[in-house]
Design a protein around this nucleic acid. Structure first.
Lengths: 287, 287
DNA sequence: CCCACCTTGAAGAGTTTGTTCCAGCATAGC
DNA sequence: GCTATGCTGGAACAAACTCTTCAAGGTGGG
């Protein structure tokens, strides 16, 4: 391993001292590193949305005399990287000192995401997006002990995009108050992973009896609610930790948010603008 | 695997039809392929010991319009060759009928996770884990409009693992009540991404004045709080959506949870068992 | 030996690039 | 509220680049 100080490191060292425009630029540089730096200064600046002087200033800040010098350094790195082919191709970034624990955790997460996508039926995804984008329906969400944050995250975005969205309280004893308003036009979105919660299953079947459409996010093994639910998303959650990872669930949730937003298009945009106005006029704790 | 005709192949195809000077040139091109072609035409000609018109003639002979076009092709090849998913993500599953939108969304998320890991300083991660595992400190968490769920998720797990964890209310007007209890032994964990919230920055500096250790989770551009904070985690959040993705933030949070749990070892386990007992005896709404 | 043809690079035109300078703008500090 | 400081991109310009033209030199056939 070469002891050469790599441009990437210099950027990281200076990370704190970078101005906003320089940060935009360094983002572009790091994104397709090091190839993105091997274009003309004009194109690079354009790609980053900054001006050419900014590029030069960054080059100077990193200790180079001018842009060509920085580029030469990148060129050399790219050369070195290409010469040593497959050997260092896949796998962890070179020269990192992470703990093995972190590494295996991250790797497990990637596997989970991959497999979750693979196991997800595109038809299910489309059905979910369509149901949740339908504003004639009203939506109720609820998560379990761990997944309550996922439910909250979904709720938070849905509420911005469309009307008629409710997040249920965590206390089962108030659920009847929500149930009373649910009917065949309603949608109940539940999150239930390992350590499945009997309360949730109970709620699901009560809702089902009222004709509610039940959507379920669960783990690879499947919560008991799977039988009741109309659509089920199975996400992989196992990681080398005492805790389960809900990242794969969040991936689907975020993708759904994007899809729903697209489906609702203009409706959502108007709503968001109106919201922004209201936020602006209710700002408090401001100087 | 792409079937793209590579510049190298074109050179070999034409090998017979090359003039002596062109052969000199193609030798140089193939020698440090494809990087040697990524310099100015003048330097390349110089390196090969030929004149610039020769370079242009060869480019034309290979079917390109001029030297820049040939260079662009080489640039792309080099890019493709260097680009390696840090954690290999097998290509997209075969024969799937997902919408292109879902696919590009997922791909963006993977890029974000990869780059976030790459940009994360292991020392920062370790420092965070150590600070948060220290039970002599008390922890306060708070997120913004979008990141409140991330804060909640972190809070939820931390609270199970260790004592002295508080999630701040979203209303700024009650923050003073929390601030009053913060001191040098306290840790304030903030989440602040794009659409940075001035209230949070205000809180951060007030806390800093009291000697509180401030930890920040933000995006690639960096919230203004970055200056105040003792440790900063930059996660990439951009995806093809009207919304930002907080998955990368969650990845770090989950990894931290795992690390903290490990650090606390037995202490955490006892606590969790005790908790389980209590859960068992307070179950309600059960058949 | 001469001519026709091909290959090659010198020279220069026109363009793009890299750099400097400076004014506008935002931000922080008083 | 005002000044000082720092960040940023536009404009200007010299340098370097890409490409064209064209004449010198080499090669092979008659």
């Amino acid at each position: 391993m070469k002891r050469t100080v790599i441009v990437k490191d210099k950027i990281k060292d200076q990370a704190g001292a970078l101005t906003p425009a320089e940060r935009l630029l360094s983002d572009v540089l790091l994104r397709d590193y090091p190839m993105s730096g091997l274009q003309s200064i004009t194109k690079l600046a354009g790609a980053a949305g900054v001006s050419t002087p900014t590029v030069i200033r960054l080059a100077r800040k990193l200790g180079y005399d001018g842009f060509p010098e920085l580029q030469a350094a990148l060129h050399e790195e790219a050369s070195a990287q290409i010469k040593r082919p497959i050997l260092k191709r896949e796998g962890w970034p070179q020269g990192r000192e992470d703990s093995p624990a972190f590494r295996s955790f991250a790797e497990a997460v990637f596997d989970n995401l991959n497999l979750t996508i693979e196991r997800l039926d595109p038809a299910t995804f489309d059905a979910l997006a369509k149901i949740l984008a339908d504003t004639r329906r009203d939506i109720f969400l609820l998560g379990g002990r761990i997944t309550r944050s996922n439910a909250d995250y979904f709720f938070n975005h849905l509420q911005i995009i469309r009307p008629g969205v409710t997040l249920l309280s965590q206390s089962p004893n108030v659920w009847p108050q929500y149930l009373i308003d649910m009917g065949p036009q309603s949608v109940l979105v539940l999150f239930d992973i390992r350590r499945y919660e009997a309360d949730l299953a109970r709620l699901a079947s009560l809702a089902k009896e009222r004709g509610v459409v039940v959507l379920l996010f669960t783990d690879q093994w499947g919560s008991p609610i799977s039988k009741t639910a109309d659509h089920v998303v199975n996400a992989l959650i196992e990681v080398p930790s005492s805790w389960d990872s809900t990242l794969a669930i969040n991936l689907i949730v975020e993708a759904l948010i994007a899809a729903i937003q697209t489906e609702r298009q203009q409706g959502a945009r108007d709503r968001i603008e109106e919201l922004e106005d209201m936020f602006r006029s209710t700002r408090i704790f401001r100087k």
